[in-house]
Simulated assay, not measured.
Amino acid sequence: MEKYISIKDLEDAALQTLPRAVRDYYKSGATEEYTLAENRRAFQRLRIRPKCLVGVTDCDISTTVFGEKVSMPVGISPTAMQRMAHPDGETANVKAAEAEGVIYILSTIATSSIEEVAEAAPKAMKWFQLYIYNDREVTRKLVLRAEQAGYKALVLTVDTPMIGIRRADVRNKFTLPAHLKLANFDGFLSTKIHNTGEGSGLNNYVESLFDKSLTWDEIKWLKSITKLPIVAKGVLRGDDAVKAVKAGCGGILVSNHGARQLDGVPSTIEALPEIVEAVKHYNVELFMDGGVTTGTDVYKALALGAKMVFVGRPALWGLTVGGQEGVQRMLSLFRNELEYTFQIAGTPTVADITKDMVRHESAYSRL
């Protein structure tokens, strides 16, 4: 694994390895993929302003999330169907998270079950990403299983009344390979995704089973059936963030679904400051994902108000290249780059990273 010295190295190796349909599914964004590119480019428009001669002899990059300590402010976002990347899939990913002391979020649409993932890494801090199905009993049972298996939070995806137009998936008539199934379900729900008809099998699955009529009242229903904290994933507006908090969410994950839902929306790092400002007087924890590929990206997100960031595709690239070891390599690269950034920028702890540590490039345009 030592030959991979950046997340880009892992990405390049993974894209050369994966079958075309799987590769395209993991890497693609919505329609013209403008936002997909912006998720990364927006980070490049931010400048870190290091403090000199601070006397930083060591740094501590750990942080606390919902009262529990994690080794660094980087966790693993939910991504679907990980056994397409590696035979061990989600179980390898969560073992890596456990070994590195970071949060792992399991997707509802996983190829390893809630229970398999819990058994694979009993000491890992695990959250469960949730979609709300037309049949509320399906959703209620998923929540109950997650609670019983020791998951610490529910991550409700709020930006998916339907799946965005991903042209590569339509062209490839993407579906889950026949030897795999959606492991959190039995019978028809576990294999329905194979029945593609026209276009993408995932689109057809979501179209027929997810509830488009959802409102913020659904948070109240969730709170009536669980004591777990609820994180709203997919928020890009300040007013929606306030609605999420008022409905009972304890966390907000600023996300544009990896730029896979609607093209032309803001990058997540662009959307973050508005949401930070909107909820500054509320007791809520803010997270962010999208386009994070370096330790300096993580640092910039922390400076703009994120409690921590989550990464999805980088974990898939590491998983593809080397299973658990590959994911651990990915996390170690982030850890190393983040430690360097803390030290050179003159901020020994997460608490020392304040908003004045970054500026938009436009602040320097007059020079």
Rank of each mutant, 00 (worst) to 15 (best):
S6C: 10
D12E: 15
Q16D: 11
V22K: 10
R23A: 10
T35W: 06
L36I: 06
N39L: 09
N39H: 08
R40V: 14
R40S: 11
A42M: 13
F43W: 04
F43D: 00
T57Y: 07
D58R: 15
C59D: 05
S62I: 01
F66V: 08
G67T: 08
E68D: 00
E68C: 02
K69D: 04
S71Q: 14
S71R: 13
P73W: 05
P73K: 01
V74C: 07
T79V: 14
T79I: 06
T79R: 05
M84G: 09
H86K: 12
A92Q: 13
N93Y: 07
V94A: 05
K95D: 10
V102E: 04
L106E: 00
A124E: 09
L130E: 06
Y131A: 11
A146V: 09
K152E: 09
V155C: 15
V155Y: 01
D159K: 03
T160A: 08
P161D: 08
I165D: 03
R167E: 14
R167L: 13
R171G: 08
F174G: 01
T175E: 05
P177N: 03
H179R: 13
L182D: 01
N184V: 03
F185R: 09
D186P: 10
L189E: 14
T191R: 11
K192A: 15
E198N: 05
G201C: 07
L202F: 03
N204I: 02
V206P: 05
V206W: 05
S208I: 13
F210H: 07
D211S: 09
S213L: 15
L214N: 03
T215R: 12
W216V: 03
D217R: 13
W221S: 05
K223C: 08
L228E: 00
I230R: 06
A232F: 06
A232M: 12
G238P: 13
A241Y: 00
V242D: 00
K243F: 01
K246G: 01
G250V: 07
I252W: 00
S255Y: 11
N256Y: 04
G258Q: 11
R260N: 12
Q261Y: 12
L262W: 12
L262R: 08
S267N: 08
P273L: 08
E274G: 12
V276N: 14
A278E: 02
V279P: 12
V279I: 13
H281Y: 15
H281R: 15
H281D: 15
Y282V: 07
N283R: 11
E285V: 12
L286E: 04
T296C: 12
K300E: 01
A306V: 01
K307E: 10
A315E: 06
L316N: 06
W317D: 00
V321T: 05
V321G: 03
Q324T: 05
F342Q: 01
V350F: 00
A351N: 06
D352G: 09
K355L: 14
M357N: 10
H360F: 10
S362G: 05
A363E: 09
Y364T: 03
Y364S: 06
S365N: 11
R366G: 15
